[in-house]
Simulated scan of single mutants.
Amino acid sequence: MDRLDELKQHLVPGKVYRRADLTRWTASVDRDIRKLLDAGELTKLSGGVYMRPKTTSFGRAPASDRDLVEAFLRDKRFLLLTPNAYNALGVGATQLYNETAVYNRKRHGRFRLGNRVYDFRIKPEFPAAATREFLLVDLVNNLKRLAEDETQVLERAKVVARELDPNALRQAAEDYGGVRAKKFFNDVFAEMDAADG
């Protein structure tokens, strides 16, 4: 078995690798990457990010968003979010978006990874998973980016806010809300407190 075959044995189909990951299996990493690219055994997704192709009955499968972003950031701490998630809140958001935001602590900007473009946004705080409370706060934070009627969405957001866990919503607004979102939710909480009082 030659050195290139030995390297290929370590590469799992469908898995994403950084150039640095491959250095543990070969001393001539750049030459071997070039050979694997030429042979179709590796696919370049971005500068220094590669994937071992995985073939299914439908053709070549793309890398998972999670694996791709993790390799690109060299970090597991990020949140993938598509504005389509807001549609499930019941606030009248119905547009479909072909965009994925990546909340993280390292990179900012739009980057093409493979065939997809990701909008990396540096955020000091974000949850490990998007709860309904977080999504409602995030919706208000990002309302200017959406193609929805702001007034209608905000009116529906007030109704939805009353249906959510009030403590979790207060915490989400405090932890993740921008200036506009904090003011909006403070007004909502004041109305709720007045109604309860």
Rank of each mutant, 00 (worst) to 15 (best):
S64N: 06
D65T: 07
D65E: 10
R66Q: 08
D67H: 09
D67F: 00
L68S: 08
L68K: 03
L68M: 10
V69E: 00
V69A: 00
E70P: 04
E70H: 11
E70Q: 14
E70R: 15
E70I: 14
A71L: 02
A71W: 07
A71C: 07
A71R: 07
A71M: 02
F72M: 09
F72Q: 06
R74H: 11
D75P: 08
D75N: 12
K76W: 11
R77G: 04
R77D: 09
R77Y: 08
F78N: 03
F78A: 02
F78V: 12
L79D: 01
L79A: 05
L79Q: 02
L80S: 06
L80V: 03
L81G: 06
L81D: 03
L81P: 02
T82W: 08
T82F: 13
T82Y: 09
T82H: 01
P83Q: 10
P83Y: 07
P83T: 10
N84L: 11
N84F: 03
N84D: 09
A85K: 00
A85N: 02
Y86Q: 01
Y86V: 00
N87A: 08
A88S: 09
A88W: 12
G90F: 03
G90E: 00
G90C: 02
V91P: 00
V91K: 00
V91S: 01
V91A: 02
G92V: 09
G92T: 04
G92P: 05
A93G: 03
A93H: 05
A93C: 13
T94C: 13
Q95M: 15
Q95D: 09
Q95Y: 15
L96D: 04
Y97C: 04
N98P: 06
N98F: 14
E99C: 13
T100K: 08
T100M: 09
A101Y: 15
V102P: 01
V102I: 13
V102Q: 04
V102C: 04
N104Q: 07
N104E: 04
N104A: 01
R105N: 12
R105K: 15
K106R: 12
R107N: 08
H108A: 13
H108L: 14
H108F: 06
G109M: 04
G109W: 12
R110Y: 02
R110P: 04
R110V: 15
F111A: 07
F111D: 03
F111C: 05
F111K: 06
R112W: 07
R112A: 11
